[in-house]
């Protein structure tokens, strides 16, 4: 087939993710999607900020949040952002094995983050009886942080699918854009988390 040749060139171009029209489209389309996601999360942040004092007699931000766990989660996610940068570095050097390795590390860190988040939610629900339904603040908190957690979960599933699907055939111009776009997504998740730990947890602690 003709495209097998064109998608597996002798020399990998400098930016394999943007070497084909499909790749360019995917790259641009995904950036725009992230622009839309910015607005989506802004709405959630706005809602949270409007409702963060509506505790209806339940626990407040200051009662609930502990900084240790949040710090650990932050470091996990930030590091996973770096590991995905490493993966892209190896993609550009056309070193598929190392790319897979770093993506694997990213996935592990992602799962660790998700585990912490589940532990945190579980803690709030059982120790403080603070749930999605207990107050407007509860609804806003779980929705904002949960949307982010949902994004992490979806990202991990996506990453695993990509890694398993391409494990045997290596890097080519057909799947390079997919890996690249995933890394963009993963960084964006990190961006959102930076605002979550600042606005929700740290500002919640300050009062």
């Amino acid at each position: 087939m003709s495209h097998d040749h064109s998608l597996n060139p002798e020399t990998m171009p400098h930016e394999p993710e943007k070497a084909t029209l499909e790749g360019k489209n995917k790259f641009l389309g995904f950036w725009f999607f992230l622009g839309g996601e910015t607005v989506l999360f802004a709405c959630l942040f706005g809602t949270y900020l409007a409702l963060r004092n509506s505790t209806a007699g339940g626990p407040t931000t200051n009662d609930l949040f502990g900084l240790e766990l949040v710090f650990i989660m932050t470091i996990l996610l930030l590091t996973s952002s770096l590991t995905s940068v490493y993966a892209m570095y190896h993609m550009k050097n056309n070193n598929f094995k190392k790319m897979q390795l770093w993506l694997g590390v990213t996935a592990v860190l992602g799962f660790a983050f998700l585990g912490c988040e589940l532990y945190e939610f579980n803690h709030y629900i059982h120790e403080y009886e603070f749930t999605f339904r207990s107050s407007a603040f509860g609804s806003a908190f779980y929705t904002l942080v949960g949307f982010h957690g949902g994004h992490v979960t979806f990202g991990l599933l996506w990453l695993l699918a990509l890694m398993i699907r391409n494990a045997k055939r290596g890097l080519n111009l057909y799947n390079a854009p997919k890996f690249y776009v995933f890394s963009l997504y993963w960084h964006f998740i990190d961006v959102v988390w930076v605002f979550i730990f600042t606005v929700v947890y740290l500002m919640g602690k300050v009062g």
């Binding site: 999605f132 339904r133 407007a136 929705t143």
Partner: peptide
């Protein structure tokens, strides 16, 4: 729509004034 859906179908309190909603 998500907020409305959560309020109507999953019992959240975004627009429930009694629980501090707005």
């Amino acid at each position: 729509l998500f907020l409305l859906m959560f309020d109507r179908l999953f019992g959240s309190a975004f627009f429930n004034v009694a629980l501090g909603g707005n």
